[in-house]
Simulated assay, not measured.
Amino acid sequence: MKNSAICLTASTLLLASCAAKSPNAEAVAPATPTVAAQPQASSTNSSASTLAAQGRDPAEFPGYVEQLKQQAKAQGISDATITAAFANVHFVDRVIKSDQNQLEKKVTLDDYLSRVITQAKIDKARELYKQHQAELASVSAQTGVQANYIVALWAMESQFGKIQGKEDIVSALSTLAFEGRREAFFTKELMASLKIIDQGHAAADQLKGSWAGAMGQNQFMPSSYLRYGKDGDGDGKIDIWNNTSDVFASTANYLAKEGWQAGGTWGMEVKLPAGFNSGLAGTKTSQGKTVSQWQKLGVTLPDGLLLPASTERAWIVTPDDNQARSFLVYNNFRTIMRWNRSYYFAISIGTMADAIVK
């Protein structure tokens, strides 16, 4: 998603191995794919060998692009948009390697959190939280999403807008569709990116983002931009690249539409009893229990104190699969996971949100 020399944002460090930590999560469509840090440009030979294993030759890419153009035309995209969007389309070999290499590295939750939540980032988040207090308060009042969670996502996704990615979105998505492993998904996102241009939200040369197609300060995929993008300042535009009002409004709109419970928290770390049935852990609806029910099963606070008696529904998650650290999480945690289907990511957002208002 970003240059490999920059390893400070949550999405940059969020490898597919982290997403694998949430096997029990119900299927959701994340706004931002779980991706690894973008490596330096790989050799064409490396990409060619990767594609060859799937029966595709990079030399066939131009012909494939013509097929994509026809699909776009069939979906009602104007000829002018198709011409502009594909004017400089090119095969991006480093995108292939980035997508294929997501499983190569594994990190623990503690490693991940120590790298994405630094004191410097917390300090900056607190500063910007205060600086934008008025517009954040307005968005929170309209959506019920607390301002500290909006800022936490802003911090993790792009370091407050500093790291958005510079890849040509049409080229990246065309390349990933051509790769074939997730052709349907990336073709859908490509068509969404063309609709953004066709509807006048952004010019073709302005569509820049991560190697995986995520865009703007909140790293929305194109389909999420169309579904959740919101004009925050009433200027008639939805500019998630440059306008913080639109970034805040769009982020909150996403969470609100995906089931955010106003005023609710995300969860807390807990201690599981010896012999805890691991099959009870997970975030499927059927795995939820009231806090009081978890208490009766022996779940306590880390220091051994009892959980507060409550009828609120909650779930148990064990991110590292070995019960080294466990968390009791609420509905809003599951909503965050609709943004990115990873226990690591959702815990980092909750942890940062808490730190901002401490």
Rank of each mutant, 00 (worst) to 15 (best):
N242K: 12
T290R: 08
E157I: 15
V35C: 09
K237I: 11
L272A: 03
M268I: 04
A29K: 12
T311C: 01
N101D: 15
A172R: 06
L15S: 03
S46L: 11
K230N: 07
A87G: 01
N88G: 06
Y254L: 07
T83E: 13
R227C: 02
W294I: 01
W260G: 00
N218G: 08
Q38I: 03
E104L: 14
L8D: 11
S250F: 06
G267D: 02
N242L: 03
K257R: 13
A137P: 04
W315Q: 03
I6H: 10
A5Y: 12
A249P: 03
N3S: 10
W241Q: 06
V89T: 15
G236C: 11
I240V: 14
A137W: 01
A85Q: 05
T9V: 10
W315L: 05
G350Q: 02
L255Q: 02
T187G: 03
Q67L: 11
Q199A: 03
K73P: 00
M191V: 06
S171N: 09
G165I: 06
V28R: 12
A125S: 11
K289A: 04
Q100R: 13
G236L: 12
V139M: 07
T83M: 06
G275R: 10
S43I: 00
T244W: 09
D205G: 02
G161N: 08
Q100D: 14
A249Y: 03
G229S: 10
E183Y: 00
R325P: 01
M1I: 01
W339M: 10
L109S: 07
L128C: 04
A16D: 06
T318H: 00
I197G: 03
T285A: 15
G236H: 12
I82N: 01
E167F: 14
R313K: 15
D246N: 05
S140V: 02
A152F: 09
K237S: 12
R334H: 04
P58F: 04
Q287F: 10
I163S: 08
Y343P: 05
N88W: 02
K358Q: 14
L306W: 09
L328H: 03
K208W: 02
D320R: 04
M1E: 04
A155Y: 06
L194D: 04
N218I: 13
A74P: 03
E189Y: 09
A31R: 13
G288Q: 13
G165W: 11
W315E: 04
Q75I: 00
D110I: 01
Q159N: 14
G232E: 00
D205A: 08
L51E: 07
N45I: 01
T251W: 11
V145C: 07
S78N: 07
G232Y: 00
W266E: 01
K296D: 13
S98F: 12
T175I: 05
A152N: 12
S278Y: 01
A256L: 05
R94E: 07
E60T: 11
R182I: 05
P273H: 04
D93L: 02
D320M: 01
A324T: 15
M215L: 05
A41N: 02
S78Y: 05
A120I: 10
T83I: 11
A256R: 08
D168H: 06
S4E: 14
S171E: 07
R334Y: 00
Q164L: 10
D79V: 06
S193F: 01
I238G: 08
S223W: 10
A125Y: 12
I122T: 14
T12L: 04
T175H: 03
N243P: 02
Q71R: 03
E258Y: 01
T300W: 11
A31W: 15
A309L: 05
I316D: 00
Y343S: 02
P23N: 09
A214E: 11
